[in-house]
Amino acid sequence: MLSAILITLALSGCEPKFDFGGIDFEPQIIVEGWIENDEAAHVILTQSITMDMDTSGTSLADIAIRWAKVTVSDGETEEVLTGRMDKNYFPPFIYRGSRIKGVPGKTYTLKVEYSGRTLSAHTTIPAAIPIDKLEVNKCEDSDTLYQIRLKFRDNPEQTNYYKTFTQIVPEETRFYSAFMGTVSDEILNEGEADIRVNRGMRHTQLEKYTPYFSVNDTVNVKLTQLPEEGFMFWSSYENEIINGRNPLFPSNTNIKSNVEGGKGIWCGYGKTIRKVVIADSIGTPR
């Protein structure tokens, strides 16, 4: 009898169909744009895909927007970004600037013109925050997994927001949003902040995701200070990734965007990057 019960309890996808057809779908232009201190602007443009699609798959050629006019202005200078193929990103097409480099304290305006639509967004680059220390510790119950803690000085006189990214080189060709890596200084210890840095998370990763690092991983840790609109975006972004499919704490609110006329984020970051190699014994940050 037990075996009969066990067999029938096996999880299964169900037959009843959901009706996705009742809502008119118009693809939205999605902006993933950033400008960091001392760096040129980067913008990836894509369009949203209807949920009611053929499950045979959509080509990335249909998602990436390649023929947009993307303009960045710092209030004094204006620059049209150049779009090009770049396999370091997914989808592999990105618009880059060259003349305008990010300066902390300055405000940058993004304008995207495509197919008769115009999108715009503004952002400011906050000051970069030095990383005081990176600490590597072995996980409590594992001999092969390691975690990183990051220490930096938070100015208790100001309201500050932070976001961390990681990149494992050479496997990863760009920085990814660190899992649970968005924080307001409201909850940080006064003075020296001590936060955990988890491995960047992405759905395009084929292996099972773990927030930890392995021996011999070379990890670039990026600590950024970002403006409030960036914090709001990344908080809702992480909520969606963590809880989009979790009935205990379901997420069903749209990600907060600062892009008028579209979705996504145009954000200025004050960044600091440090590299750490996970050694066999307790790691020594380099």
Partner: peptide, 14 residues
């Protein structure tokens, strides 16, 4: 009702 990619993560549009 829709889905989009940012940072190589798929995000729902509700």
């Amino acid at each position: 009702t829709a889905l989009y990619l940012i940072g190589e993560n798929a995000l729902n549009e509700y």
